[in-house]
Design a protein around this nucleic acid. Structure first.
Lengths: 139, 139
DNA sequence: ATTAGTGCAAACGTTTTGCAACTAG
DNA sequence: CTAGTTGCAAAACGTTTGCACTAAT
């Protein structure tokens, strides 16, 4: 958290109360929030922050790799890329809650297979969809 | 193609010129088109078709599983689910072209791992991002 | 004749932008 | 001081909706 702020300062970004609040809010969710949800969270402490500030900070943080932007049918959600450890997600199709799963199947075989087609792989996305324990019970 | 139309008729859907044109258009792309691109293609033969008709047909076809809706940063793209054979995609981050890759890493291990967390997997999404042969050359 | 499908226009929700005022460094 | 940042308002964008009209069965 302070680490991130230091990282920003080093790159010439200023540390504003809004920016602090966005990072803090990102940290406070147990699932991946939307921009709107982040706004609501941020406004608990900084009532005057506007939605565009949320978006501007998110896209800046995403560019720096500090945040991951994940696309969902009804808008994006944002994940604080803690400790940079690689994982994938279980996404509940009913409530949208997201859990992490620590398996990644990507090996060099894929890169080789892609290279055969002249395609250079730079990244990947791997997600599972289904029902979380909560939604499964409620049926 | 005629097969799909028959399938629709059986379920009580009507076969309109617009619907025919949408399916034909879907078939004519070598990459996965957006709704706008489909509209342009459809209008080559049916100039008066409107964008909402494209959307309405796409969501109907998606519900029936005839079409796959794939989420991209700047809107959805649509894939005609030919022959139902399972595959994944290489997506060019520069031009958006999409190629298929015939490897799927999903095994029961994932379902088991997810079940440990009380999560029931019903589907997954696996995509690679990078540069296609075309965009790689142009640098 | 009946019901599904269409085009139009307007609405919607998310995200982006231009701008003048502000503030952290 | 001054470059980066903010809030506001308005726009952009993809997508959805209500409605009266049309067309496939």
């Amino acid at each position: 958290m302070e680490k991130i702020l230091e990282q920003l300062r080093l790159k010439g970004y200023k540390v504003t109360p809004q920016r602090r609040a966005v990072l803090q809010a990102l940290n406070s969710f147990e699932y991946f929030p939307t921009a709107q949800e982040l706004l609501a969270e941020v406004r608990k402490t900084n009532p005057d922050v506007s939605l565009d500030t949320i978006y501007r900070n998110l896209s800046m943080l995403t560019e720096l790799g500090i945040v991951h932007e994940i696309h969902r049918t009804s808008g994006n959600v944002y994940e604080l890329a803690k400790d940079g450890h690689h994982h994938h997600h279980l996404v509940c199709t009913k409530c949208g809650r997201t859990e992490c799963i620590d398996i990644c199947p990507v090996t060099d075989i894929y890169k080789e297979e892609a290279e055969k087609k002249g395609f250079t792989i730079t990244g990947h996305m791997f997600e599972f969809y289904g029902l979380c324990s909560n939604c499964r019970e409620k049926k």
